[in-house]
Amino acid sequence: MAENESIAATGAPESGVRTPHPAVRWIARIGVLLGIGAPLAALAMALMTGAGWLGWQISLMSLFYLPWVAMAGGLLCTIALIFLMIGKHWRRALWPVVGIVVAAAFVGIVSYTFGKAATVPPIHDITTDLSNPPAFETLTLRADNRTAMPPVEGDPAMAWREWHETAYPDIQPIIVPVSVPETIAAAERLVEERGWELAAADPATGRLEATETVSIYRFKDDVVLRVTPNPNGPGSVVNMRSVSRVGISDLGVNAERVRAFLADLSAATAG
């Protein structure tokens, strides 16, 4: 009778190796599968998107659902872990702990990304000149550049401008103390240092175009610089534009790129 009670409580006779109840083992297995499987699925889809095997819309849409799968897995791992601790099955607690940590990290990263999206405007075209943005000549501006935005009343171009002015008032042209050809040469060096793909660099007309590939999704953002002589004195005026090829919101990436590049260009031409 005592032996039967021991088997019911531990899942194994007292004389044998103590094992958790089968239900606990299954809860742990399913929890680990979901908690680790969901992030791995998101990673696999991101890599497939980067390789051109899967549309970016599917990959990003999955991020609305996979965190819920991961949270369910983390919850099951937590339940299993509690029973494993009560039963003092220390060695079997490793994988549920891993499942909890991985699921929590994944949910945290996705939540941070969506939270950041809520703090920036839903635009993907950032420039220092809102009235006359630098034009692409070698690279092709996306056809839906002004329509790939949330529905607005009135002119989408005006909505884009208002969002841009409100969110990024600091994105302005810079004046450098060197000639147009020297500025293009300095910009070309910065492009090379950053590992961007140079599409065009014309010192005579003061134009440079390049593409940066970002994240494991391998999204491509196009950049164009327009450098003109300073009409009010020596040096040159630099305007810049950075546009994402796909998507609606760029999560502020283009603005960060413009700020960083112009700051580095200013420093590179200062002395």
Score class of each variant (00 low, 15 high):
G35R: 01
W160K: 04
G31T: 03
N232E: 15
P169Y: 09
V102H: 00
H21T: 12
V214E: 09
S111L: 10
I86D: 15
R25N: 10
N230H: 06
A143N: 14
P173M: 09
E5R: 15
A135W: 10
E193P: 09
L47M: 09
E256F: 15
L54Q: 01
P151H: 07
G11I: 01
A72N: 10
W196V: 12
Y112F: 13
V214G: 11
R257M: 12
W196P: 02
A41D: 08
T213A: 11
R226E: 07
L251G: 05
P67M: 00
D129W: 09
A159L: 05
A204C: 11
P133V: 11
E153H: 11
F114W: 10
V258P: 00
D250A: 02
G154I: 02
Y112N: 13
L40D: 04
V237R: 00
G35V: 04
P134H: 04
V101N: 04
R142D: 12
V227A: 04
I174C: 08
I30D: 06
A93M: 13
N239L: 12
R146P: 15
V258N: 01
A157S: 12
L66Y: 00
T140A: 14
P177C: 10
V98P: 01
T213Y: 04
L225F: 06
L251R: 13
R25Y: 13
A157W: 11
T269Q: 03
